[in-house]
Write a protein that binds this DNA or RNA. Sequence first.
DNA 1: AAAAAAT
Length: 483
Amino acid sequence: MAANIDWVTCAEEQEKLITKVDSISLNKTDRIPNGSPKTGIGAEGEPEDKNVDEAPISPAERSLLQKIIRKGLVENKNDIEVQRKDPTSPLFSIKSFEALHLDPQLLKGVYAMGFNAPSKIQETALPTLLANPAQNMIAQSQSGTGKTAAFVLAMLSRVDPKKDYPQVLCLSPTYELAIQTGEVAAKMAQFCPEIKIRFAVRGEEIPRGTKLKEHIIIGTPGKVVDWGVKYQFFDLGKVSVFVLDEADVMIATQGHQDQSFRIHKLLPRNCQIMFFSATYEHDVMDFAEGIVSNPVIIRLKREEESLDNIKQYYVMCRNLEDKYTAISNIYGVVTIGQAMIFCHTRKTASWLSEKMSGDGHAVALLSGDLAIEQRIAVLDRFRDGKEKVLITTNVLARGIDVEQVTIVVNFDLPVDLARKADCETYLHRIGRTGRFGKAGLAINLVDGPETLAVLKQIEDHFGKKINKLDAEDVDEIEKLGKE
DNA sequence: AAAAAAT
């Protein structure tokens, strides 16, 4: 990906210039074919931006601008990389939500959620996502940097409530994530009662022949294929915005991939595509670029930064029994905050949960084995802090946002089918803690030479040393837990 | 291996 990229070094002046240039390009209706800029940025009938006349571009600025455009690439002081194949697309960032010219009711919802100013990823992603003509985007930024709010805001502002059919489709890899996204959307749209949202997930049943009237569908792949492809409860050909959350798993893992493609195939040619994830393996990013036509690619730089506020350790064990002893020792201290314990299989997760419960440790369990009602109940209890320790599988590795999670324990290290380290999942798992810049603690249980090798692979991948911790040294763990 | 679809 990074090949033939030549960075334009960033200066404060450059950013000012970009802002200036953008205000010009956005108000230039002649760059939009057939006139008529739509609602949102540069709304029709709005007076020309005063900046345009007051601050024309100097020759020096123009040459710098041309350089930027030629490279199709901008680096700004927020550590955001922007890469564009189409140099004529607008390019700018915003510093306040007002600058987006949102519907006032929607803006009210944004503020009601406690968002005062856009996060880094939002500053750059939102103007592009809301610009007309619509542009496709592949965005990468770490856990807890405001990705969900970014695309939810884009989804909501793209809805035309007067049209009573689904116009926006958002796919998530798991039930829990779809619900969480829907909750964010509902909250943000709390002052926009005309916007209707529908979940297409397990447990939702509707009679044959139904035609959905909700504007936004948020769902998981299987159900969306059922509703959109098999039974045609809504017309995928009328969807104008398609969001893939955790896009890398959605397009690259067996099962999700087929379903995502079946849906993608039926979308209209001019549908705006948005890919969001914290991680894209190199190949997957190439693949994604093949799927999304002419995307604006933005990424929050230096993914290892997200690991800076998370302390990582490992405990050397000889076998399963050792691991159990270690987890029991850790248990005593993790309850200071909340903890998530990740296992490789549902079976291990339920075994561990039963064994710990049997030994008097209060733990909760969430995996795909559970009935959907159970999953809701368990996650609710965990969110409310009624459960301190949650044993789970990769189902909750991604995206789940529980603020009080201070410790992540990898009872089993994340590995792929070839038993190689799954670094993306590792990053996502430990990203459950240390959210929004808070400190976090990750403890990995290693039970032999194979898993030690996996740990090494993870260390190498992120270039971070993972220090050893003595399982018997409860005091040490306790100290860490309290920090 | 997990997830996601019912069956």
